[in-house]
Design a binder for these strands. Sequence first.
DNA 1: TTAGGGTTAG
Length: 404
Amino acid sequence: MIDEPMHIFDQMRQQGLSPDVVNYGALIDVLCKLGKVDEAMLKFNQMTKEGVTPNIVVLNSLVYGLCTVNRWEMAEELFSEMLKQGIHPDATFFTTIMRNLCNEGRIMEAQSLVDLMVRVDVRPDVISYTTLIDGYCLAGRMEEAMKLLDVMVSAGLKPNVVAYNTLLCGYCRAGRIDDAFRFFREMLSNAVTPGVETYNTILHALFQSGRFSEAKELYLNMIKSGMQLDIYTCNIMLNGLCNNFVDDAFKMFQSLCSMDSQLNIITFNIMIDALLKSGRKEDAMGMFTAISAHGLVPDVVTYHLVTKNLIKEGLLEEFDNLFLAMGKSGCTPHSGMLNAIIRRLLDRGEIMKAGAYLSKIDEKNFSLEASTTSLLLSVLSREEYWQHAKSLPEKYHFFVGVDK
DNA sequence: TTAGGGTTAG
């Protein structure tokens, strides 16, 4: 798909038109968002070679891409270059860096950037403050996050719905739902209209803290107020109900299907997990089969849920099939899954098959869990298995007869 | 053409 704009550039050239800074900017931005930073840099170099002067927007996209893949040094080089060319950093530039610092937990450095912005005469905007508020929330430093909202107001800025949602979400994550409600009221009194994201945040927190009746009431209020519910609302409700009311969740799921609601793979994962946990294996497998009928494909979570159950049930051939399907769809097995299947196969004395999965563990550089190692030792100490043990990867031959 | 917020497992 990314090839398309490149073809468009070729077509433009054929017609005697040259891509300008906006065209290049759009392409570089898409490449950076896809994590293809090297390709983005190539395009950037090509652009400058063609005599198209970069602007702050293009540089911001590149800085975004470079920071996201932790290429801080290159971002710094770019920054120096940009100053040399007389391009001044703007609020977006600083906010991009702040976002990445916050994600790495480097909150004080992010805070000092806001101070630097003021010194170099770049006014932090609502997004800059919101980014920093989120950083404090992520670090669990709620009092500082809250104070920043006041700083923002003193700087003459008006917090918007995203700023409030960020703070509200921080309080919810910290389990301080009543404080979240306080900000919810403040939001209303400041004429900031809560969005579906706001309600979803509170709904999720209410379920998380076991306040089921309040959660259900809030959900009904959302419907009553004519709010457009989205896939997040559905998933939060389903997941919340699954904790104690699986039947209600199942009914809600069916009614969503009958209303042709747009579900996603997370919806199915929530349901499969809950059905398996409550022992409804057939319903869970039915749900797994229904995924493709909804135009969706299983993801790594789906495979992990279902394969875990197959191992538990001893349906190892079905596991093999699903394991292959998983590989074909590009989902990577995790270490726990491989260890679990190896243990189950060793239990059954299927050494050769266990060997195949041991090789997968080695390929991925995963480690054997202690329980897998001890089972392997105990199985291979039995003479009846020595012959089979030769089929194991060589590094495991050492285990043969060790106990004897 | 660029920056900020909400959902699943382990």
